[in-house]
Amino acid sequence: MTTLDADQLLGAVRAFAQGPLAAQVEAIDRQGYYPKAELGELARLGAISAHLDAPHGGSDFGLAIRAMAEVSRVCGATGFMVWCHAVCGLYLQQSGNPALSGERLQRHVGGLGLGGTALSNPMKSYAQIETLLLKAQPVEGGYLVNGNLPWVSNLDQDHYCGAIAAVTDGEQALGREVMFLLDCSDPGVELHECPSFAGMEGTGTYALRLKDYFVGADRLMADPAKPFIARIRAAFVMLQCGMAVGVIQGAIDSMWAVEPQLGHVNQFLDERPDALQAELDELTARVMKLAETPFNSSNEFFLDVLDARAQGAELALRAAQSALLHQGARGYLMSSAVQRRVRESHFVAIVTPAIKHLRKEMARLSQQETPA
């Protein structure tokens, strides 16, 4: 992995995103091209690991978010996969399990292994939106896990992800969950193709089916899982803000791109690029402040993180629609970057935690209920 200071890293990521990555955006969005080589290069540059504690320096969540934003500014799908890989690295490091936080983590940091996160269903479960779909039966030396997950991203046959299962004794729940690393190449794991999406087809998204999947001590991230989730929940959500910031900036870029030709009529639109940029700059500053203390476990801090994440999703929707209106008919072409960003903004708004999930959790925290 290349060692660069913050400005050098961001400059290198920007150049790569606007060059080699930009050349693949259409294939990633519509043709299902999975950018494995591109993700490996971003890892080599350090774009996917700035938030992780380094042997000779501390973590920088703000830098990780800004790097993710540079990627998402060009390709929201790749920005999302950067988040998947980044948050999987967070699980590995925070697990405290030497089998996961040593050589395995170093391979992950260097992009020699690529990982995702299967925590959409558990996060919805903790918010009382869904029930847990994976069940873990205690056996000698670990657990046997069974169940199906419909949507897990940044996967392939040689990839891995963090997952959570409810611990059971037969059909009886034992009142706790276990978090573990799931290797897609292991026995008992099946990947199944998902139906075609509206966009972002190249995100390596599969349905996962587990049949008597064995989890030993070398795969355990947390047992029980809830204290671990309580510790990382703010960091998990906060990192996603990099996706939102990048998609918003890309939309604003598209608005400015047509200003010389269409500014004389676009001036009559309600949302103008300078006003949206001011909102984005304010949001970015807010996120950078939150990123200074990513492991603050207070409900008040988590409420601020959820609110910033919701603000990012809502601003992404507004900015993408405004970019479409500014570009007019040229923005309605399927090949248009604006048309792609409209779909990307919808994804920012519905990916876990979706806007409705965020608002539900914010309402609960505002009422000072006991955390899930």
Rank of each mutant, 00 (worst) to 15 (best):
T2W: 09
L4Q: 02
A6Q: 08
L9K: 04
L10M: 09
G11H: 06
A17D: 02
G19A: 11
D29I: 03
L42I: 03
A50C: 04
L52T: 05
A54M: 08
P55K: 03
G57I: 07
G57T: 11
G57H: 10
G58Q: 06
G58D: 05
R66Q: 15
A67F: 04
A67D: 03
A69E: 00
V74K: 00
V74H: 10
T78Q: 04
A86P: 05
Y91P: 04
S101Q: 00
E103P: 08
G113V: 13
L114F: 12
A118R: 02
A127S: 12
E130A: 12
K135R: 12
A136F: 05
G142T: 06
G147H: 07
G147I: 06
N148Q: 12
L155D: 02
D156K: 15
Q157W: 14
D169W: 06
E171P: 09
A173K: 14
G175R: 10
D183N: 14
C184P: 07
S185C: 15
P187F: 02
E193V: 02
E193P: 00
A198S: 14
G202T: 03
T205V: 11
Y213M: 07
Y213P: 06
F214W: 14
F214P: 01
R219H: 07
M221V: 15
M221H: 05
D223A: 01
A230W: 15
R231T: 00
R231F: 00
R231Y: 11
A234W: 12
A234M: 10
M243H: 07
G246Q: 07
S254I: 05
A257E: 15
V265G: 00
D270H: 15
A278L: 13
L283E: 12
M288P: 13
E292T: 12
F295T: 08
E300R: 13
F301A: 08
F302T: 06
Q311N: 14
Q327C: 13
A337M: 12
E344T: 05
F347V: 07
P353F: 01
R364N: 15
R364I: 13
Q367S: 15
A372Q: 12
A372D: 13
